[in-house]
Nucleic acid binder design. Structure first.
Lengths: 344, 344
DNA sequence: TTGAAAGCGTTACCAC
DNA sequence: GTGGTAACGCTTTCAA
């Protein structure tokens, strides 16, 4: 049975701690703040700490936030949650935030109910000190953040003229994948993208054509297909491209492992062997790549670093008022597995 | 350039709205509350609303929470985020919460830093009105929630003697999978579980042995293997079981699709054909099941309903003080795909 | 129908 | 070194 404080209330406040320790509320506050610079008699400090421990006191974050005009909380807005890249970003951002004594609130941007979305509450209601934005499919969000001058950082997204974003280099990575394939002797390259109205889709397409041009090849519209709905559609898209094409591709860049897996299934269904008759590479790695037969070669990006740096940069901006940079992480790696063969 | 209110401050408060509308703060508050029962002259109401709109006023959730002793926010503690079951639960819980005008804060329970975990802050600091708990691997959390009498509901978890949990029926589903396999003529069934110290692992093992007994079969310890670390380990575990066993299994229940995929790879590496020489079924479905060759038969649970009911039950308890129930959702479905064959 | 004022739990300024 | 007190932005009771 928990001890009672004021009539009927079971949660101790700072006043209860102060009373139990026989000091004033302000003294108790100073002790609890933990500030080493404050001058407090050691004996007093102990008495307060003991009282707080005995009562199980925890500061009320709401009252504290009201007073300090700071919540020590960050928000991250993500479009989907069960996605390896976002999962990694969220985890590393949370870890970095916690290390700096911030909380990270994850908010799913629900397409179905954008106007009631969590972020409105979080952000407009001053529930967080800053926001990490990993989706710009709702352009209203960034606008509103800017209008309300709420610190925010675009993560794995960038916007023309926007100050404060941190990205990995989808363009260059994709271009180098193309070069890699060409070096292996491939000349007819296909590209099956994800939704092209989204950021990642656009960047990868940009990198694909850039890579071709660097190799002196011309992009062939016939070899570029868009896949909006995942695995089964990817198989169809590939078959359509393959059948329609006069000179069929010998290698395919797939936006991610789900699409790669689907199009491999499609290729098989028309009798194509992977990698012997068709090379496939995924432009984004995931655990699925290793489970696949054959294992899918894929590009790996430093998403962990991305999340960590993002959280730290945002907190720096909050605490020091420092300007936010536009950062591009150039590191990436092509993990070679069994889905690509050399034509030489 | 945003308009200024009090000196140097750019965010309008209720006082600013009231001043702009020429009414008292309390009147503005009443209008903004939207309570239909309050008697307010229509003309006044319009004036306040107009002022609020013009200034872009949003109530400060921190101040409101402090005053009301209610945050209209829920927390959900999840062990991992990129997992199809948790993803679905989170999405549906968030949707249900938003419909009832609550926010849902997602909190990753980080094994590495349990004591700094978000939930402490959320919960102890009164940041939420209630908590959905989807992991009990840290037993301290539930204890503390109970001690502080914070409303909480176990989701997809249950605890001896705990009031308030909502689960799907892993035990019965697994038992019926076993019966299904036996009906198909299988007699030697293996089970490759996930971590057995976790809730789901225990329940599935319980269901596995229960199913065998119902069919008059005795569980064979030799045919039960534990897989803690995913795909590659699953292959090893299966091979170990298969080789060591005097009478090898003709069918395997795998805890999830990752384990199923891994053990199929292991089976292939020792020359076994799936499903011709070995049937495999996953006790939990995921998108991977369809991408696999052969597609993996798997059990589907109503996780969407689970999340929705959980949020609603928690909110009911918060608002009406209603007692929380222990609910078991009995629905599930075996999705038959290509990884199981009949011996008849 | 509207206004004044108290109070939620905290921090920080200013006295002592 | 410590205590009293105002203030953060809101809701709600009580009075007018």
């Amino acid at each position: 049975m928990p001890e009672q404080f004021r009539k009927g209330v079971l949660v101790p406040r700072l006043d209860d701690v102060a009373a139990a320790a026989g000091v004033a509320r302000s003294t108790a506050s100073r002790v609890m703040s933990g500030e080493a610079t404050l001058t407090i008699r050691e004996e007093t400090r102990q008495r307060v700490l003991d009282a707080a421990a005995k009562l199980g006191y925890r500061p009320d974050t709401r009252a504290r936030a009201l007073r300090l005009k700071r919540t020590y909380a960050l928000g991250i807005v993500v479009p989907e949650i069960d996605n390896p890249a976002f999962g990694t970003i969220i985890r590393s951002a949370q870890k970095a935030a916690i290390e700096r004594r911030y909380s990270l609130f994850i908010s799913l941007a629900d397409k179905d109910q954008p106007d009631t979305a969590l972020y409105r509450r979080l952000v407009e209601g001053k529930g967080v000190d800053g926001v990490l934005v990993t989706t710009i499919s709702d352009p209203g969000l960034v606008d509103e953040l800017r209008r309300r001058s709420i610190k925010h950082l675009l993560v794995n997204r960038e916007l023309e003229g926007h100050q404060g974003s941190i990205i990995v280099d989808y363009v260059e990575a994709t271009a180098q994948v193309v070069e890699h394939l060409v070096m292996l002797g491939h000349r007819r390259l296909a590209f099956i993208s994800g939704p092209l109205h989204q950021y990642a889709g656009q960047k990868r397409l940009e990198g694909f054509t850039k890579g071709l041009r660097r190799c002196g090849l011309v992009p062939d519209e016939q070899l570029i297909g868009e896949c909006n709905y995942g695995w089964a559609e990817a198989a169809e898209v590939f078959k359509r491209i393959y059948v329609a094409s006069a000179a069929p591709p010998s290698a395919v860049c797939a936006a991610n492992t789900t699409i790669a897996s689907g199009m491999i299934a499609g290729a098989r269904s028309i009798g194509l062997e992977v990698p012997d008759e068709l090379s496939v590479i995924s432009l984004l790695d995931s655990p699925l790549a290793l489970m696949h037969v054959p294992a899918i070669s894929a590009v790996q990006f430093p998403f962990e670093e991305l999340g960590r740096l993002a959280a730290n940069e945002l907190i720096d901006a909050i605490e020091n008022g420092s300007e936010m940079e536009n950062v591009r992480l150039e590191r990436f790696r092509i993990a070679e597995r069994g889905s690509v063969s050399s034509l030489r």
